[in-house]
Design a protein around this nucleic acid. Structure first.
Lengths: 214, 214
DNA sequence: GTCTATAGCCGGATAGAC
DNA sequence: GTCTATCCGGCTATAGAC
C-alpha cells in the first residue's frame, strides 16, 4: 500500500505571521509525528493520547489545545499524508506521462516506504481497523481505496494503450491485484519483517502482469 | 487468507459423559461462536466480553466460568479453527496428492470462506492487530503465517515437480505471493465488499503463476 | 452455573488556575 | 499554552450469594 512517495516538509498549514506562533506550529507538527508513531504501532483504538503526549513530552490534556478530539488528531494525520502524496499523483490523472515508467514509479514508492515503517503500520493497521462498524475513519478508507484503485488503473491504462500489459490483463484488474498483493505482502512483513521482501514481490508481480522486464 | 476449509462440527473437546454436561458443552460452543462474531467484527482489543455475553444471552461475568480470561477465549477460538483446518492440511504435507488439484483446492477454500465472513474478519483483523507490540497473539500469528507459507509452498512444490509452474516461479514465491494477494484483496473486500471479487482475483493470480487454465 | 455487586484501572474529555 | 484536578464512562476481573 502506498501511503506517500515524497518527503515530509508538509505544505498543509498556511504560513504563520511571526515568531510567537513558530513554536506553536512546531508543537503541532511534533504531535502529528508522535501520532503517526503511536497509531502506526497500536492502531487508532489501542493507541492512547497519553502515549502520544509522552512522546512529545507534554501532558495529555494539552493535546486538546491543538486537536479537539482524538478522532480529529487521526484525521489530521491522514490529511497531512494525503497532501504529501497528492504532490505525486493527482486524482484521475495518470501518475506519470510515459507508459514505460509506470512500474518504476510503483517500485520507487515501495522502496521509499521501506524508510517509513511508522507510516506503513499506520495505513495498514488503521485500514484494517476501519472496516469495523462504527469506526471514525470508515468512510475515509472506503474513499481512499477507491481513489488508489482509480489512480493505479489510470497508470495501467497508459500501459494498456501502449500494448505493455500481459494478455488478458485489464487496467482494473492490474490495479486491484497490485494493490492487494502490496497490502498483503506488507502485512506479512509487519508480522515478521525477515519473512518477505515487499519490493521484490511487487517487482515480480509487475513483471507478470506486464510485458516489460521490470 | 485461508482460515479453514471444512465445516464446523468441532472435534476438539473430548466427549462428555452424560446429560448434565451436555448443556454446559453447548454453552461453551455458543460462547466460542459469539466470540468469532465479535472478534471478527471489532478485533480483539475493541471486542468486548459484554457484547459476546449479550449474544449468547448471559451475564459477562458468567463467561469466566468457561474461560479464565479474555485472552484465553481468543486463543480458544483460534485453536478451534486450527483444529478444523488441520483436517484439510497437515503441516508439512502437501494439501492434495495430485499436482493438478492444487489450484482447485485454493479456490475451494476461498469459495467456502465467502460463507464465513466472521471468520475472515477474525483472521484478517486480528492478524493485523497482532503485529503490534505486546499483543497476546503476536507469537501465534508469526507461527501461523510461517506454517501457511510452508503448506502453500509444499503444494506448489508438487506442481513445480510436475512442470506446472510458470517459468521463473519458485514454490516459495508462489506461496508468499498467493497468500499476500489473498490477504490484501480480502482486506479490500472487508472495506468495501462490492469493490472486489476475492475468488476471481485468486483464480487469475493462480493462472498467471501456473501453466494451467484454472 | 449464573447471578449481583463491586473493585480497579485506564480511556477520553472538561473546568479552571496559573 | 500548559498544567492539576476531576468527571464519567467502559473495560476486565474478583467475591460471594443463591
Amino acid at each position: 500500500m502506498p501511503p506517500s512517495a515524497a518527503e515530509s516538509p508538509s505544505p498543509t498549514p498556511p504560513p504563520r505571521r511571526r515568531g510567537a506562533y513558530a513554536k506553536s506550529e512546531q508543537r503541532r507538527r511534533d504531535i502529528l509525528a508522535a501520532a503517526v508513531t503511536v497509531f502506526g504501532a497500536h492502531g487508532y483504538r489501542a493507541g492512547s493520547l497519553k502515549e502520544i503526549a509522552d512522546l512529545v513530552g507534554m501532558n495529555p490534556t494539552s493535546l486538546f489545545h491543538y486537536f479537539p478530539t482524538k478522532e480529529a488528531l487521526l484525521q489530521a494525520v491522514l490529511d497531512e499524508r494525503d497532501a504529501v502524496s497528492d504532490q505525486v499523483a493527482l486524482d484521475g490523472e495518470p501518475m506519470v506521462s510515459r507508459a514505460e515508467d509506470v512500474p518504476a514509479l510503483f517500485l520507487r514508492i515501495a522502496r521509499n516506504n521501506e524508510s517509513l515503517p511508522g507510516i506503513i503500520g499506520l495505513y495498514t493497521l488503521v485500514a484494517a481497523e476501519s472496516s469495523t462498524p462504527g469506526h471514525p475513519t470508515r468512510e475515509y478508507f472506503i474513499e481512499r481505496y477507491r481513489r488508489i484503485r482509480r489512480q493505479f488503473a489510470s497508470g495501467f491504462a497508459l500501459m494498456h494503450e501502449a500494448g505493455l500489459l500481459a494478455p488478458g490483463i485489464t487496467p482494473e484488474y492490474a490495479a486491484s491485484s497490485t494493490l492487494g498483493l502490496w497490502d498483503g505482502v506488507q502485512m506479512q512483513w509487519m508480522i515478521e519483517p525477515e519473512a518477505v521482501d515487499v519490493v521484490e514481490h511487487l517487482r515480480r508481480h509487475l513483471s507478470m502482469i506486464t510485458t516489460l522486464e521490470v
